[in-house]
Amino acid sequence: MSPDKFEPLIVGFLCNWCSYAGADLAGTARIQYPSNIRIIRVMCSGRVDPLFITKVLRTGFDGVLVSGCHPGECHYQTGNYRARRRLAITKKFLEYIGIEPQRIQASWISASEGAKFAEVVNEVTQGVREIGPNKLFAEEGNGIKTTGGS
């Protein structure tokens, strides 16, 4: 990443059974993609609390990706549907307070879709790069210091 060009930082929440496995497959297949993403493993995309997404953006990251199993293939029956609904609402809320909706991306990636994972990271990185840095919370300092679940 060269200093003169804006390189976004993106946090990806991946479910253990499909998308995280897909990311692993991209690795074993040695498919190259931009290094802008940092991955947090959750057991199910249904675990992704709106709080996490808000936290990522308030902390000053430029984008967030939530990825789970394809519809009907969730390891926990319905977690991915819940993730999808929560994400839709979270996105609306964040848009309302001034976050560009493109910063929040969701995708379905199965364990066999290593190439798709790489492609999604490419797209998300490119998309966020185009809209530029996330400055909404910049005046609050680089990141919010409080932690906690509520």
Binding site: V11, R47, F52, K55, V56, F61
Partner: peptide, 19 residues
């Protein structure tokens, strides 16, 4: 309700650590 091993504070700590 906390999801053991993937508790809110654990995941939030991961996010904070990144910055």
């Amino acid at each position: 309700i906390s999801m053991n091993h993937f508790k809110d504070e654990q995941i939030l700590a991961q996010i904070e650590a990144l910055m």
